[in-house]
């Protein structure tokens, strides 16, 4: 009984279900991001879903395991990487003439590799939103509030 209390996280049922579902949630987020220019979805929704998959892991197994998968430093790096990637795509538009010019060949519609810069922008926004929200959630979790008695 004592050993169970010391283990971080929730009960065995929650852990087993989490082990089955968390990969599917991550995969669904990646699908939403990469198909954002053909079907409903996009960088914002996919980024939030990817962040939710890591948060799911953290809620079920405790904070140590989730931070081993994606540490705070890595999350900060990914957020800055997303911002810089988005700005770089915008600045590369000066090749064609103006900011955010769609300079890549547009391809055939309804294909995965089409629409020029839009999938790349979706991926950049996904990095930014997902890593940012995960970093915020980690900061909220790690804060220990001492209960003050009046």
């Amino acid at each position: 009984m004592n050993k169970k209390i010391k283990q971080p996280g929730m009960t065995l049922i929650v852990k087993t279900i989490t082990r089955l579902t968390v990969g599917l949630i991550l995969l669904y987020g990646i699908y939403i991001v990469t198909h954002g220019h053909i079907s409903p979805g996009g960088g914002f929704a996919g980024g939030v879903i990817i962040a939710l998959s890591f948060i799911h892991l953290m809620l079920a197994f405790g904070k140590d395991l989730a931070l081993r998968k994606l540490s705070e430093k890595l999350a900060a790096f990914f957020e800055s990487f997303g911002a810089i990637m988005f700005l770089t795509i915008g600045l590369l538009g000066f090749i064609g003439g103006y900011f955010f010019f769609n300079f890549i060949f547009k391809g055939k519609p309804f294909n995965l590799f089409s629409a020029g810069i839009i999938p790349l922008c979706n991926i950049a926004i996904c990095f930014k939103v997902g890593a940012g929200l995960f970093a915020v959630f980690v900061a909220l979790i790690l804060l220990k509030v001492p209960i003050k008695k009046e």
Partner: peptide, 17 residues
């Protein structure tokens, strides 16, 4: 509105902090 929803979440998190 798609941009506004995510901004609303960020602002809510800031106020909660």
């Amino acid at each position: 509105i798609l941009t506004n929803i995510v901004i609303g979440l960020a602002v809510t998190v800031l106020i909660v902090a």
